[in-house]
């Protein structure tokens, strides 16, 4: 199993066991729900805005370690960012998760997920949180499905 350490890095296991920003956010301005119907991953994402910035972000949900850690890391990365900045990070993360390319030093935490591209069926686990965030920020508030 040790060969899988590239996918399940220490940081991933840590966020899986101790997810950051976990729980309901009272008084959220935006909320979106995401799911992966085929594997049953489920996510409720809450965002509080101040002007155009993400003042606070929290999540609840259940799913695999890749999903949970990716969501947890995302909340730590986008907190304090403007909507535009957050969406721009998503674009770069999307490239990272599908090609393994880490294009800047800012991406250090997210780089823990850089091996996901080698496991195509797991890419959707890593992307669900970001797709759901995108929906929340665009204030569509619909159910996001990555299938």
């Amino acid at each position: 199993m040790t060969e899988l350490r590239d996918l399940y890095q220490q940081l991933i296991l840590d966020h899986n066991q101790h997810p950051r920003n976990f729980g309901v956010l009272e008084g959220a301005d935006l909320m979106a729900r995401g799911n992966n119907p085929l594997c049953g991953d489920q996510l409720d994402l809450y965002v509080a805005l101040e002007d155009d910035s993400i003042k606070d972000i929290r999540f609840e949900g259940s799913g695999c370690a890749i999903f949970k850690s990716s969501t947890s890391i995302m909340t730590t990365v986008v907190k304090g960012k403007t909507r535009g900045e957050a969406l721009e990070i998503f674009e770069r993360f999307h490239r990272l998760a599908t090609t393994g390319e880490v294009d800047s030093a800012e991406m250090v935490k997210l780089a823990a997920l850089a091996s996901v591209y080698k496991y195509p069926v797991r890419v959707k686990c890593a992307l669900l949180a970001w797709r759901t965030l995108e929906t929340a920020l665009q204030e569509q508030g619909e159910i996001v499905s990555t299938e």
Binding site: E3, L4, Q17, C64, A65, I66
Partner: peptide
């Protein structure tokens, strides 16, 4: 403590 999808991936490695 282990989601079944992670488990299936780990077992596949074996």
């Amino acid at each position: 403590g282990i989601h079944p999808h992670d488990l299936a991936q780990l077992l596949d490695q074996e």
